[in-house]
Amino acid sequence: MESGADEVVFDCDDYRIYRSGKMDRLCRPAREPTGLDPATGVTSKDVVLDPDTGVSVRLFLPTSPDPSKKLPILVFYHGGGFLVESAVSPQYHNYVASLAAAAGVVAVSVEYRLAPEHPVPAAYDDAWAALSWAASAQDEWLAEHGDSARLFLAGDSAGGNIVHNVLIRASFQPAPRVEGAILLHPRFGGNTFLEGEVEAKAKDMAMIWEFACPGAVGGADDPRMNPMAPGAPGMENLRCERMLVCAGEKDWLAARDRAYYAAVTTSAWRGSVSRGGVAWIESEGEGHVFFLKKPDCARAKELMARVVAFIAGA
């Protein structure tokens, strides 16, 4: 039995957290190389945004049937609980390349800093900086092929949480116009358990959040983790024109994601009553971010088609 500072307080396939605040990353995925992906016809490259912090992005440019046609720009934030994963891992490289090809977008996948070495809000700050950079079209791919007037945000799990917080931040400081936001199984929590939540899992997720964000006010009721907590900015502050919220029926986050969707639809958010506003898709029988693990299954293809349709405005 371990005790004291060496006691393990959380253990999973990807990482192990100790009471001392130390963390072991148990899964360190290889870095997927950039270049032309024969499977999708998408070309990728890496761009460093800040040499001091190491924040970078991986850009994905699909083969366009009409080189003169400008493509929507999609800024993507990967998941991993703010603790693990990467924009350049095979899992996220392959997913974003497939999304860029299917939707016909120039994708900007963000390599933000991870906790505990860089506690939250570092991830939010990096996400904001990447959005501002993408909208400014400083890179030649974005300048030549991207349409900054059609800007989208997307993210899975912790990345979906980041999307929400970037949209809230955009209501308090100057920001580019965001046409649409796609929240894929977004990671939210709270101190009060919801119907359908597994209490032990919710407690673990609250502990992980406080580990990633030691300055969290109110634990899992910190407004950045619980958008419906007392004192959290109202959903009317969301700064995007349209939204797609996605959940998995058997995901441990499903109850939170349904509550988030309900809160948006019943709010005074301008998008909730215009142009179809906020849309919802729940993948029957599927768990958390299943589309990353089983990209070729029927439900993953169905979800991809819905995301592509959303970007197209359908």
Rank of each mutant, 00 (worst) to 15 (best):
67 P>V: 11
84 V>S: 13
95 Y>E: 03
311 I>V: 15
56 S>G: 06
203 K>L: 13
44 S>Y: 02
68 S>F: 06
221 D>K: 01
100 A>S: 15
166 V>Q: 01
118 H>F: 14
157 S>C: 13
84 V>I: 15
45 K>H: 07
211 F>Q: 06
166 V>H: 01
66 D>N: 15
207 M>Y: 07
216 A>N: 05
293 K>P: 00
161 N>T: 03
195 E>Y: 00
95 Y>N: 08
19 R>W: 03
105 V>I: 12
274 S>I: 12
279 A>K: 15
117 E>Q: 14
82 F>N: 14
271 G>I: 12
104 G>C: 14
19 R>I: 01
237 N>I: 00
182 I>A: 07
122 A>Y: 09
298 A>W: 11
149 A>N: 13
136 S>H: 08
223 P>L: 03
151 L>T: 14
289 V>W: 08
142 L>V: 08
51 P>V: 07
131 L>T: 10
92 Y>P: 00
166 V>S: 04
295 P>E: 10
104 G>L: 13
86 S>P: 12
180 G>N: 09
78 H>M: 09
50 D>Y: 12
15 Y>E: 09
113 R>P: 12
109 S>M: 03
244 L>G: 04
155 G>H: 04
242 R>K: 15
278 V>D: 04
4 G>I: 04
299 R>I: 09
64 S>E: 11
161 N>Y: 05
228 M>S: 01
17 I>D: 07
35 G>V: 07
62 P>D: 02
103 A>P: 15
11 D>T: 12
128 W>N: 01
152 F>G: 10
2 E>R: 15
133 W>N: 09
187 R>S: 13
220 A>G: 02
103 A>N: 11
261 Y>A: 06
189 G>I: 00
248 G>Y: 10
171 S>L: 05
68 S>T: 15
120 V>G: 06
1 M>F: 10
43 T>A: 11
273 V>C: 09
310 F>G: 04
191 N>Q: 11
217 V>Q: 11
209 W>H: 09
247 A>V: 02
279 A>L: 14
235 M>V: 04
66 D>I: 13
164 H>V: 00
286 E>V: 06
294 K>F: 10
201 K>G: 05
120 V>R: 10
308 V>A: 09
142 L>Q: 07
253 L>D: 00
283 S>W: 01
126 D>H: 04
71 L>M: 14
140 E>T: 14
162 I>V: 14
110 V>M: 03
74 L>P: 13
167 L>F: 00
8 V>K: 04
168 I>W: 05
275 R>S: 08
156 D>L: 03
114 L>M: 13
146 G>C: 03
218 G>M: 05
39 A>I: 08
222 D>V: 02
113 R>E: 05
85 E>I: 09
299 R>Y: 02
189 G>F: 01
239 R>Q: 14
229 A>R: 00
43 T>K: 09
114 L>H: 05
102 A>L: 10
6 D>Y: 03
256 R>W: 05
96 V>S: 06
118 H>G: 09
190 G>H: 00
125 D>V: 10
199 E>L: 11
241 E>T: 15
89 S>I: 13
2 E>I: 05
